[in-house]
Amino acid sequence: MSGEDDLIRLQAEPIDVGAVVGWVSDVDGGAIAAFVGATRRQGGEEGKTLAALDYEAYEQMALGQMRQWAARARQQWPIRKLAIVHRTGRVEVGRPSVAIVVSTPHRAQAFEACHYLIDALKAELAVWKKEVWSDGNSSWVD
């Protein structure tokens, strides 16, 4: 099965998770698994708190990586539809930075494919994030 129909996107606009899930819905996909990664509130030194994360992507490379992982997932699981949407730009704390949604005939396959994809993104996706703190300071995460 070709992955031409996958929804693979980097976007500066907020991620509408409901719309992504709707896009992945398929009459032959009895199971839809969604992983949503969100920016997490955290404390820093001297009582300051995290306000947002700024995401910067090497867009051509990141899109190629996501397409490659999507193709690998399709080789391993009977995926009906697949979406990976990742944010760029500023994401306020608590807002989605990535959504991975997969539909398959049965639930175990959907969970496994989703898990595989988020692990691949976390390890190697050419996207970087900068912490923006409540006091206005910022620093790249490494």
Binding site: Y58, Q60, M61, V127, K129, W140
Partner: peptide, 29 residues
């Protein structure tokens, strides 16, 4: 380092027109 959008080792030979990207540690977490 990535050469033409793929991770590449230090021994990779470059060619005219290549795109060489410096890749800091990715955001993962």
């Amino acid at each position: 380092v990535a050469v033409n959008l793929n991770y590449a080792g230090r021994d990779t030979v470059l060619h005219d027109g290549d795109e060489l990207a410096l890749i800091p540690p990715v955001s993962g977490g």
